[in-house]
C-alpha cells in the first residue's frame, strides 16, 4: 500500500512540468524516505534527480520500497485535470498495474478520481559520487532562466566561466555573440535576489544550451538556483523545493577535441 497526500497540489504539477521536456518515461521510487526519481534524457547527456521527502507530505504511507514506472507525458496529461489549488492524493496498491490520482478542491465540493496505467521501465540507476565543486554560484532562478533564454536566441552552447570578477555566461552563433556577467551581490535585503559566488578555482565549462534551457522549466519551484561546477565534470543545476527536497539536473560538458 502506497498513499501520499499533498495539500499544495500545484507543486506536483510544477515538478512534472520541470521534467517532462527532458524525460519520457521514468521509475518513481517510493520508500519510507519519500518519493524520488532518477532519470536520463534519451541521449544520455543529462540526468534529473528529484527528491520529495516524506515529511513534506500531509500524509505519507509506504509499506514497502517499490518503483512505479510512469510515462511523464501521460502523468502531465492526468495532472492537467487538477486545478492549481487542488489537494492531490496518489495511491497504488501492491501488485496492481495502475496508480490513482485523486484531486480535491479546497472546499471539497469537487473530487476527481483519475486512474493511470503503470509501465515496466528498464532503467539504469546511476551512482552519483559526492563531489567537492571548484565553484558554486547561487543566483535568482528567474535571472538564470532569462539569461539562458536570451543566449539561446544567439547560439547553441553556453560557456560558463567563474572567476573572482563574477560568473560570465557566453555564447556564439552565426549572427554574432553575446556574454552576460553577473557579479556577486549579497548586500541585497532580499536573500532571494542575491547572487553569491563561492570559488576555490576559476572554472570554464561549455554546455549545450538546449538542455540548460530545459532545466529552467523548474524556475517556479525555487526563487534561487545553485549551479555547481568543476573542470571536466557535469554541472549540477539545483532547485530546492521548500521543506520537501530538490530537483537536481546534471549535464555532461562539451569538451574540446
Amino acid at each position: 500500500m502506497f498513499e501520499l497526500r499533498l495539500v499544495q497540489g500545484s507543486l506536483l504539477k510544477r515538478v512534472i512540468d520541470a521534467i517532462k521536456d527532458l524525460v519520457n518515461d521514468a521509475n518513481f521510487d517510493c520508500s519510507s524516505t519519500g518519493f524520488s526519481l532518477q532519470a536520463m534524457d534519451s541521449s544520455h547527456v543529462a540526468l534529473v534527480a528529484l527528491l520529495l521527502r516524506s515529511e513534506g507530505f500531509e500524509h505519507f504511507r509506504c509499506d514497502r520500497t517499490f518503483s512505479m514506472g510512469m510515462s511523464i507525458a501521460n502523468m502531465a496529461k492526468m495532472l492537467k485535470c487538477a486545478s492549481n489549488d487542488d489537494i492531490i492524493t496518489i495511491k497504488a496498491d501492491d501488485g496492481t498495474d495502475t496508480v490513482t490520482f485523486m484531486f480535491e478542491s479546497p472546499s471539497q465540493d469537487k473530487i476527481s478520481d483519475i486512474e493511470m496505467k503503470l509501465m515496466d521501465i528498464d532503467s539504469d540507476h546511476l551512482g552519483i559520487p559526492d563531489a567537492e565543486y571548484e565553484a558554486i554560484v547561487r543566483m535568482p532562478s528567474t535571472e538564470f532562466g532569462s539569461i539562458c533564454t536570451s543566449l539561446s536566441t544567439i547560439g547553441d552552447t553556453v560557456t560558463i566561466a567563474v572567476s573572482k570578477q563574477g560568473v560570465t555566461f557566453s555564447t556564439k552563433g552565426d549572427i554574432g555573440s553575446g556574454n552576460i556577467t553577473c557579479r556577486q551581490n549579497s548586500s541585497t535585503e532580499k536573500p532571494e535576489e542575491a547572487t553569491i559566488i563561492e570559488m576555490k578555482e576559476p572554472v570554464v565549462l561549455t554546455f549545450a544550451l538546449k538542455y540548460i534551457t530545459t532545466f529552467t522549466k523548474a524556475t517556479s519551484l525555487s526563487s534561487q538556483v545553485t549551479i555547481s561546477l568543476s573542470s571536466d565534470m557535469p554541472v549540477v543545476v539545483e532547485y530546492k523545493i521548500a521543506e520537501m527536497g530538490h530537483i537536481r539536473y546534471y549535464l555532461a560538458p562539451k569538451i574540446e577535441e
Partner: peptide, 14 residues
C-alpha cells in the same frame, strides 16, 4: 570544435 560527453562517462552504474 567541441564534442558532447555522455553522462555515463562520469557516473557509475549502481
Amino acid at each position: 570544435l567541441t564534442f558532447q560527453v555522455c553522462i555515463h562517462d562520469f557516473f557509475f552504474l549502481s
